[in-house]
Amino acid sequence: MTAIEQQPTASRRRAKRGNYAPSRARREQIASSVLQIVDQSGYGDVTVIRISKETGIPQSSILYHFPTKDHLLVGAMEYADSLDGKEYNLESAWPELSEDMLDKLIRMRLSRRNRLLLMTYLRGLATQPDNPASKYLATKDMRTVDHWTKLCTQLQHQGVMHQALDAKRTAMQVLALWQGLVQAFLRDDSLDADTMHDLFMDGMRHLTCRNWQEFLTYLSRPDVGI
C-alpha cells in the first residue's frame, strides 16, 4: 500500500483536496493579472502570452484554468466583483444603502472606464448561451436585482417608495436605467460623474414615485393646512 492508502479515510480525503487551495490561488493570480491589463490598456490587449510573461505562469497552466480569452475576461470581472464586495461590504450594506454610499459606488464604477467597456463587450457575448459571459451576467444581474429589491422594500417601509409598486419589478427597472446610462456615458464625453449621479437619482425618484410620496408628505404637514 502507498503512504496515502495507509492513511485514515479522513486524511485521504484531505490529501485528495490538497491541490484545491493552490489551484484557487493560481486562478486568482491569473484573474488579477488580466484585470490589471484591462485597467491599464483595455481588454483588447489581454493575451495568454502577456499574462504568462507578467505572472511567470506557463501558458499551458493559464489555458488549463481559462481555456479561452472569454473565460479570462469573465474570470477577471468575477475577481473584480469579489474585491468590490469586500471593500464596500455590499452584501450587508444593500438593505439600508445610504445616498452617500450610492454616490460613492456610482463614482467608483464610472472611474473605471475600461471595465465598463469590458462589461459592454461581455453583454454582447452573453447573447450566446454557451459563452461563459452568459452564465456570469445572468448570475450577476440576478444578484443585483435581489439587492435592489431589498433596498426598494426598505424604502417602502420608510414611506419613501410608493406602496403599490412591485419591489422586484422596480429593481429590474433600476438595473435597466443604470445600464442605459452607462452606455450614454461611454458614448458622450460631456457626461461627467456629477451629471450621471443626478440623472440616476432623478430616474430613481421617478421609478419609485418618490416625488409623489414627498408631495403627500408635504400635504400632511400641519402648517400646510390641508
Rank of each mutant, 00 (worst) to 15 (best):
R26C: 02
Q158I: 04
Q158D: 15
R12F: 02
E78A: 14
W148K: 02
R14L: 15
M101T: 05
I57Q: 03
A138D: 14
T2M: 03
H157V: 06
I226K: 12
G180V: 01
D39R: 09
S32T: 07
I106D: 01
R26F: 00
P95K: 12
L125H: 01
D194M: 05
S98F: 00
T170G: 08
L118F: 00
Q7Y: 08
P67Y: 06
T120K: 10
A25T: 07
P22D: 08
Q179G: 08
S32M: 01
G56R: 06
E96M: 11
L207P: 03
V160T: 14
D130R: 13
Q40I: 02
P58V: 06
A193P: 00
Q158N: 14
T153A: 07
L151I: 05
N211C: 11
A126Q: 02
L35E: 09
L155K: 06
A167S: 14
V74Q: 00
Y121K: 15
T208Y: 00
T120Q: 13
L63E: 07
W212C: 10
E87M: 11
K69E: 09
G42Y: 01
M142N: 14
P58M: 12
L175S: 06
L207C: 02
E28R: 11
D39S: 11
E28N: 13
M1W: 05
G159A: 07
G56C: 05
K168P: 00
D81W: 03
G203C: 09
P222D: 08
L125G: 00
L207T: 03
I49W: 10
Y88N: 05
T170K: 06
T170S: 11
A93T: 13
M1R: 10
C152I: 07
L165T: 12
A93M: 11
K16T: 10
P22Y: 07
T217H: 15
R221M: 12
P58C: 08
Y64D: 10
A164R: 15
Q179P: 07
